[in-house]
Amino acid sequence: MHRLLLLLALVLAAPSSAQSARSLNTEGFRLYQAGKYPEALEKFQAAAQADPKLALAHYNVAATLGVLRKQGQVCQYEAYRETILERLNTSVRLDPRRLTRAKEDADLDPIRDTVGWQRLLGRSPERLADVPEILRRVTWFSPGEGVYGSTRKLTFPDGRRVVLWRRVIEDSANPTRTEEVSGTYTLKGRTLTLSFPGKKPLSGKMTPRGVLEIDELGRFLDSPSECEA
């Protein structure tokens, strides 16, 4: 009996997972305020692990990864756009009020030009009516090519202009050379036609999954290939 009472007392005295998570989150916030972002990230991640239902912890992980991404520390802390969006989506699912904060949070600027962020705002590439807006608001990247990562990027600054950026890797004398060319585009439903000076028009489309498929240029996604070996 005495042993059972002792065990019960220890259980009652032990902090709950929720309490531990809140404490870890508070520690992380203090580190964040002090500009110690890697240390803050570690605390926020521990808080989310201690209590997976703590929306604020997931949100803080997303925001801190956004800061680290801005600082160019993508590979060191896996501050990928997909990871930030995953954490943010979890936070909003647990507490929809987090989306209101996210709309004003500069830490999350690195994901604003993604399909995932457009989905959070209520737009979907599955709806034809949303395709023109998504096309313009997203930055599109080609899949990675080894150590070079994504070598092509498409942006659609307005309802008429398209800009193609590419890294020229076949030039062994200057493998980091880049070039940029502007053109025009038309969009009918999901079908795209791109026109660049001196080139024949290129046809393509946006799939319901939010992927661009362009003749001769290939596939384009809303996140670049990063940190490849």
Rank of each mutant, 00 (worst) to 15 (best):
E126V: 05
E78S: 12
R161T: 15
A173D: 11
E126Q: 13
S150A: 12
R22E: 14
L8I: 03
Y148L: 14
L194C: 03
P96E: 05
K43D: 14
R3N: 05
L41W: 04
A63M: 06
R161C: 11
L194I: 03
R123A: 15
R87C: 06
S223V: 08
E216A: 13
L121C: 11
Q71R: 15
L6D: 14
I84Q: 02
P110D: 00
P175D: 14
S195Y: 02
G146M: 12
F141E: 03
R112W: 10
A106Q: 11
V61D: 03
L128R: 13
S20C: 13
V115D: 00
D109N: 12
A34E: 08
S172M: 10
S195F: 01
K188Y: 01
T26E: 15
W140C: 07
A57F: 06
L121P: 10
D222I: 06
A55S: 10
Q73P: 00
P15T: 15
P52S: 07
L41P: 03
R123V: 12
V131Q: 09
R93W: 06
G204N: 01
L187M: 07
L120P: 00
V115P: 01
Q73V: 02
Y59I: 12
P96S: 08
K205L: 03
N174S: 14
F141V: 08
R101H: 09
G146F: 08
F141G: 00
L135P: 07
G218L: 03
G35W: 03
A9M: 09
N25W: 11
S150I: 06
S172C: 11
E216K: 14
G28N: 05
Y37S: 01
R190N: 03
